[in-house]
Computed example of a mutant assay.
Amino acid sequence: MGTLTHIIQSFKGEHALVTKQLGNHTTINGNEIYYEYYENKSAKQTFVLLHGFLSSSFSFRKMIPLMAANYKVVNIDLPPFGKSGKSHQFKYSYENMAETLIQLLENLHLGDVILVGHSMGGQICLNIAHQKPSIVKQIVLLSSSSYLPRMKKAMIYSSYLPFFPFYVKKYLEKSGLEANLQNVVYNQKMIDEEMRQGYMEPFLHNEIFRALSRMIRDREGDLDEKVLKTINTPCLLIWGSHDRVVPLSIGKRLKEDLPNSKLVVINDAGHLIPEEKPSQVMSIIVEHLQN
């Protein structure tokens, strides 16, 4: 494989080997899971991409061409986000999400995968490795959320109220798409109409707000230090130096708690590093895998 330049050249020259299966939906644990599978016929390793909270598989669109040249890639919409189902009966806990994704990977006959998780997706990666380490070869955590407790009881009880989804919608509208995008990137000049549309689209339908209400009461909190110390899967931690959502101090703490981990910091980058620094992120990953 070699350098990232070689990877990009390979993608341009051997794109015929890479096929994208569009619009894959499968029902697992009573909810519909949407995923894209880039099946590189010559690749031996598989990346599984898990996005962050209030995001979707859209956030990895700049990294996929760099990955698909030499790897198989599975890009997943975590329920209830993106094009995945928003069932009111599905349990939106990290434990159940991890169980659901393990079943998806088994259904696709994939094992020994490289999990890549951004923000909340990183926490799901850690849950998968905790539940079934045999299915995971490596973990790449991109500004991974960690150490967040469960929601306070008052908020959990409130989530049962009939009007609560409306409250969630109004809260997100008040915070505003533009302000949220400005908060997650260091270089705010990169925010364009494609980004605005891509991150807004999943929230144009009311079903997402009902599902988020259920997620508020189902989310059990992040894995604690005792559990993290039992995860021996090799973990590469990549952080933006100017992350305002999950600050670098969290990455440093996570490195201490994960026994087989390495932390790399990207300068002049915020929280949304798959968008902001895709080539640099991929270069770091490739170098790590080759060592």
Rank of each mutant, 00 (worst) to 15 (best):
Q131A: 13
E287K: 13
E36T: 04
P80N: 04
E207P: 03
F209E: 00
I216V: 14
W239G: 02
I135N: 07
R219W: 10
L104H: 08
F47Q: 00
S57I: 01
K169N: 12
S10L: 09
V184Q: 00
G30M: 08
S144G: 11
M200Q: 14
G52M: 03
Q188K: 15
V286H: 05
S249L: 12
I285P: 01
A16L: 13
R61K: 12
L289D: 03
I139D: 03
Y34S: 04
H288P: 04
T26R: 09
G111K: 15
G82Q: 00
P79F: 01
E220K: 07
P259C: 08
Y37H: 09
A43R: 01
S249R: 14
G2N: 14
E193D: 14
N180H: 12
V246S: 02
E193R: 10
F60S: 01
S283K: 10
M120F: 14
M1R: 12
N183H: 14
Y94I: 06
V136E: 05
I124R: 01
E173A: 12
R150P: 06
F11V: 06
L258C: 07
L105A: 06
M1I: 13
S119I: 07
P259M: 08
F166C: 12
N127Y: 13
N206G: 08
C125S: 14
Q280G: 06
F11E: 09
F11N: 08
G13I: 08
G121I: 05
Q21P: 02
N107I: 11
G13S: 14
R210L: 10
V184K: 00
Y199A: 00
M151Y: 14
V246M: 06
